[in-house]
Amino acid sequence: MRRAFELLAPWLLLAALLGLWEAACRGLAIPPYLLPPPSAVGAAIASGWPSLIVSTWNTLKMALLALAVASVLAQALALAISLSPTAERAVRPLAVILQVTPVIAIAPLVIIWAGADNPARAIVVLAAIVAFFPIFSGAVTGLKAADPDLSRLFRLYGATRLQTLARLRLPSAIPYLLEGHKVAAGLSVIGAVVAEFVAGSGAAQGLAWRILEAGNRLQTARMFAALVVLGLMAALLHVAIDRAEKAALAWWRGR
């Protein structure tokens, strides 16, 4: 009984909050353009479902594409600079500056370079910039994280640099790479949404565009509908990546 209550607790809280919200909207006669009741949001989701699904897919596609681009570039660069301490010292400050510069501030430049008629390209680039750093930092740290005694053994056994990289440093970096990708996946969704706000969308409209469009028309319930779907999508992506990370880590650790 108690266990069932524990399991139901989050849902009960959600239901209570929604009920309170619904009651407040009706009781206080709040205008729906300011705060629509949950029932109106539900109706907006139900009626806008076909376009919401398409937009969700577009946003997810951009985020995953950005994640893939960031993953390849970040790992390649981390690998390149890990081969030489001088290269790492040279790249670090630049990487930090690029990282702390707000991506929104870079957006207008990227939009020019991507071409005004190519907002999708700009969105992927911007989201990839945001997703780049957790993977890059994780890879740089991970490639240095090998057990020092194991490194000594590799030296003792006369391992070449390539052997040490392939058989010691890369496998040792795996937990750090997994963690980096998990963080980056969350950031790539944020990046894709923010970038769409700034860059707009071409033929493929994402959830950010749905929110802006509904906002411009003061259709607040539809804004909430897009937000709810966006939250669900991000949560599902998070769960999927988290599961994948745990499974990969379990395999890596051998248990």
Partner: peptide
């Protein structure tokens, strides 16, 4: 050959792969 205070095995490899490592590196 050296044996350290900790077993210093690579967790991602089986026992046999860990033991075979010095030979494979050579």
């Amino acid at each position: 050959s050296v044996v350290f205070q900790a077993a210093t095995l690579a967790p991602w490899m089986s026992a046999a792969a860990n033991v075979a490592l010095p030979l494979e590196l050579a």
